[in-house]
């Protein structure tokens, strides 16, 4: 199969959905001529015109709120917020409006829209352009949250997100945009709530999200040299979360490490750990380990930022600690 990047895969999903359904329109900052900060919307303005690919003012409440209003009245908007950090300036539109309407109106009205954004440190962009607080949206009922880690998943999940009848927070990872992988040329959807086993193993389960999937795969190859056989589960969507696949894997391996780039406190890893504690504790032979970002803002200085980012340097010792329990 041909290989394309994560950004190209997302671009293909948008193009295919826009071709198929004229209700799909894009709004965001610099998504037109510029092609989006990470080139996800490159070429779409030329192909679909400025009625469907709208460069918005730097006015997140206006264009995210407008997406809610457009979705409520029959469109399928896909809004892009350049960095998840900027979603804070339109939080009302996301949390009080987009997420609430279907329930609050007793099922009258729906908001089929996608809000694309991204997380991830590692670009020297400091504390307001590098955060990974996707857990915030997992906390809010009414939102679906997708978290693709590969180009294949990126295309299939975005297609599903656009066709879904619910509001979706589509959380990309900025270090993954240039990663390549096999992606079918035809359109396809990946159903929400179905985890993918990225690596099969019998000794230890890593539930990893986003870039931590790649980093865990590298760590797994490293510890394989020591005879440790790691299984890697990628939930792919955080709401809904495929608990069954996680619990089944933990039942098999008896050891759990959860790896997510959000802060450790109250994060996705905390939630998954709690689920396993509630529903699978008797499968565990070792205390659960978490590999997350520390509870500090993202620092600028490169050595500090490298230290901040959760990766193999944290994963490998955590794996070894877990293997001490027999």
């Amino acid at each position: 199969m041909r290989e394309i990047t994560y950004a190209q895969a997302l671009n293909e999903a948008l193009r295919e959905c826009m071709k198929e359904d004229e209700r799909v329109i894009l709004l965001g900052e610099d998504i037109g001529k510029y092609g989006g900060i990470f080139q996800v919307t490159a070429g779409l303005l030329d192909e679909f015109g400025d009625k469907r690919v709208i460069d918005t003012p730097i006015s997140e409440a206006a264009f995210v709120g407008a997406s809610v209003g457009a979705a409520l009245t029959g469109m399928r908007p896909v809004a892009e917020i350049m960095f998840i950090d900027f979603t804070t300036v339109c939080m009302d539109m996301i949390i009080n409006q987009m997420a609430k309407m279907h329930y609050m109106f007793g099922g009258r009205g729906k908001v089929p829209m996608v809000l694309r954004t991204n997380i991830g440190a590692g670009r020297g962009a400091a504390a307001q352009h590098s955060q990974s607080f996707h857990a915030l949206y997992v906390h809010i009922p009414g939102l679906l949250v997708a978290a693709p880690s590969t180009p294949y998943d990126a295309k299939g999940l975005l297609t599903e997100a656009i066709k879904n009848e619910n509001p979706v927070i589509f959380v990309e990872h900025k270090k993954l945009y240039v990663e390549k992988g096999p992606v079918p040329e035809e359109s396809y959807s990946i159903p929400f709530g179905k985890a993918d086993i990225k690596r099969e193993g019998k000794d230890l389960t890593i539930v990893a999200t986003h870039a931590l999937v790649l980093r865990s795969l590298r760590a797994a190859e490293e510890v394989a040299k020591e005879g440790i056989d790691v299984e890697i589960i990628d939930p792919r969507t955080l709401t809904p979360l495929d608990k069954d696949t996680i619990l089944k894997s933990v039942e098999k391996t008896g050891r759990l490490l959860v790896a997510d780039e959000g802060h450790k406190t109250c994060g996705v890893a905390a939630e998954i750990s709690a689920i396993v504690a509630e529903e699978g504790i008797y499968s565990l032979r070792a205390p659960v380990q978490r590999v997350c970002s520390p509870d500090t803002p993202v620092p600028f200085s490169p050595p500090l930022e490298q230290s901040y980012i959760p990766d193999e340097k944290n994963l490998i010792p955590a794996i070894r600690r877990l293997m001490e329990y027999t």
Partner: peptide
Amino acid sequence: PIAVGAGL
């Protein structure tokens, strides 16, 4: 903003 979206 929701009204603006309905307008769009």
